[in-house]
Simulated scan of single mutants.
Amino acid sequence: MADPSLALQGVIYPRLQADCPSVSGRVYDRPPQAVVFPYIGLGEVQIVDDSADCIDGVEAFITLHVWSRAVGQVEAKRIASEIHSSLNGAELDLGSAWQFHLIEHRSTNYLSDPDGVTTHAVITFRALIDAR
């Protein structure tokens, strides 16, 4: 069985590029050395078995990171809101290997980084997926 996080990343990445104008397409799996702020980073993914009789399912927890150097938290909160609007309750097509059921927002945390200038938002979503 293929890793469902690859299918999720494959649909989430372009969706965020299109739906989050505040980052002007700056959505990264790994940001470049000379990254321009603000941007969204694709973060950690946890896959939890959710199988039942005759169903090969998983629960996927996807973490996205917003990085902003604007003064205060307003920019990070605006971007987090764009992410929420883009993904929460979205219908995603994961291709022929996976049957998508839902994606829902679980939490958002806003942090001030120790550098004193960067605001960091950590946004977590939960998705339910079955193998076809």
Rank of each mutant, 00 (worst) to 15 (best):
A2N: 05
A2P: 12
A2Y: 03
D3L: 07
P4I: 03
A7V: 01
L8G: 06
Q9T: 12
I12M: 09
I12G: 04
Y13V: 08
P14V: 13
P14Y: 13
R15T: 13
R15G: 06
A18S: 15
D19H: 10
D19A: 15
P21F: 08
V23W: 02
V23P: 03
V23K: 02
Y28G: 02
Y28F: 14
P32K: 15
Q33C: 03
A34Y: 04
V36M: 12
V36L: 15
I40D: 03
G41D: 07
L42R: 04
V45R: 04
Q46S: 12
D50A: 13
D50C: 06
A52H: 08
D53T: 08
C54A: 14
C54R: 10
V58M: 00
V58P: 00
E59V: 10
F61S: 11
I62D: 05
I62H: 04
T63E: 13
H65F: 15
V66S: 05
W67Y: 04
R69C: 11
R69I: 13
V71K: 13
R78W: 00
R78L: 12
A80Q: 06
L87H: 00
N88Q: 12
L92G: 11
D93F: 06
L94D: 00
G95Y: 00
A97G: 12
W98K: 03
H105N: 04
H105V: 01
H105T: 04
H105K: 07
R106I: 13
T108H: 10
N109W: 01
N109S: 06
N109V: 06
Y110V: 01
L111N: 13
P114G: 07
D115W: 11
V117G: 02
T118Q: 10
H120A: 08
F125H: 03
F125W: 00
R126E: 14
L128R: 14
